[in-house]
């Protein structure tokens, strides 16, 4: 009983961390530009696929392959932002939704073409396999590793957001765009930058999370809803909100699937509806 409880908490936490890493970029860019980007899940998926290829086919070591995949996805996202997204800033959300859905469809087709329709997994190096003893209990090494990386990302993000000039600019722009512009912040460039960073983080989550989320071409749609929930429930542009929402979502989803598997994702959506009706603007509204 206690044992299963601990392992659910552990797995839920690992899932939550992956959700957070992937979604946080979406939250910040949506808060910043009000752009409903449904293609964010595709960036996570691309991160996973590119990392798999780098490691399996190009023989890159794990600790190099994953970061390289992030860089690749960041570059791809910059190209898309400059050529497509930019045209729809300030357009209504329906157009943004449809443009990015179109991108997702194309992305799914391309990924199926290159990597095939079946589930692909990242090859984990030997030192991350097996279990690790944390004193009171043994845990899977790889998931422990995911959590460590995630905590590092959380701390890094918090520091970047709260303590650097870039972070201050982003916060100012999310808070009040017109004001930020009048004090000389270049919103467009700031957005490109955060967009690339957010996409890179999504790629990182996508690459690290293949063991938890799996990796098939429909990933981009399948998990999109989860990422969007984190953003909407957490509140646009809120780091704390996204973290809290990811935590709730990850743990509730894992527990729900464990205890009441017949209900599938029922709990998540019930909880989402209740939370959104309770706080329509999310936990930490602007």
């Amino acid at each position: 009983m206690i044992n299963s409880f601990i392992s659910i908490a552990f797995d839920g936490l690992a899932f939550a961390m992956i959700l957070f890493i992937i979604s946080v970029g979406l939250s910040v860019t949506m808060g910043l530009m009000g752009f409903v980007n449904l293609a964010h899940g595709m960036f996570a998926m691309l991160g996973g696929y590119i990392a798999v290829s780098l490691i399996r086919e190009w023989g890159a070591p794990f600790l190099l392959g994953a970061p390289l995949a992030c860089v690749a996805v960041a570059l791809i996202s910059i190209v898309l932002e400059r050529t497509l997204y930019r045209r729809l800033y300030g357009a209504d959300e329906l157009q943004q939704v449809l443009l990015t859905i179109g991108l997702v469809f194309m992305g799914i087709a391309v990924c199926t073409f290159i990597w095939g329709p079946l589930n692909v997994q990242l090859d984990v190096p030997p030192y991350l396999k097996g279990q690790v003893d944390l004193g009171f209990r043994r845990f899977p090494t790889y998931r422990t590793f995911i959590m460590l990386i995630s905590f590092a990302v959380v701390i890094g993000l918090w520091y970047g957001f709260e303590r650097t000039l870039l972070g201050a600019k982003v916060r100012a722009a999310v808070d009040n765009q017109r004001m930020a512009e009048t004090v000389g912040i270049n919103i467009r460039r700031l957005f490109t930058l955060t967009f690339a960073l957010g996409s890179a983080l999504a790629a990182l989550g996508g690459a690290l999370g293949t063991e938890i989320l799996g990796l098939t071409p429909t990933y981009a749609l399948e998990y999109l809803v989860y990422f969007l929930i984190v953003v909407a429930v957490g509140g646009l542009g809120s780091l704390r909100g996204a973290f809290l929402a990811a935590l709730i979502l990850g743990v509730v989803d894992t527990a729900g699937k464990y205890y009441l598997p017949a209900f599938g994702a029922f709990f998540i959506f019930a909880v989402t509806i209740v939370l959104l009706l309770w706080r329509p603007q999310g936990f930490y509204a602007r």
């Binding site: 949506m30 409903v36 959300e93 939704v97 809803v225 969007l228 929930i229 953003v231 909407a232 646009l236 989402t272 509806i273 959104l276 009706l277 329509p280 603007q281 999310g282």
Partner: peptide
């Protein structure tokens, strides 16, 4: 976004 998410 909230309306979008609720319908979904």
């Amino acid at each position: 976004l909230t309306l979008l998410m609720l319908t979904l």
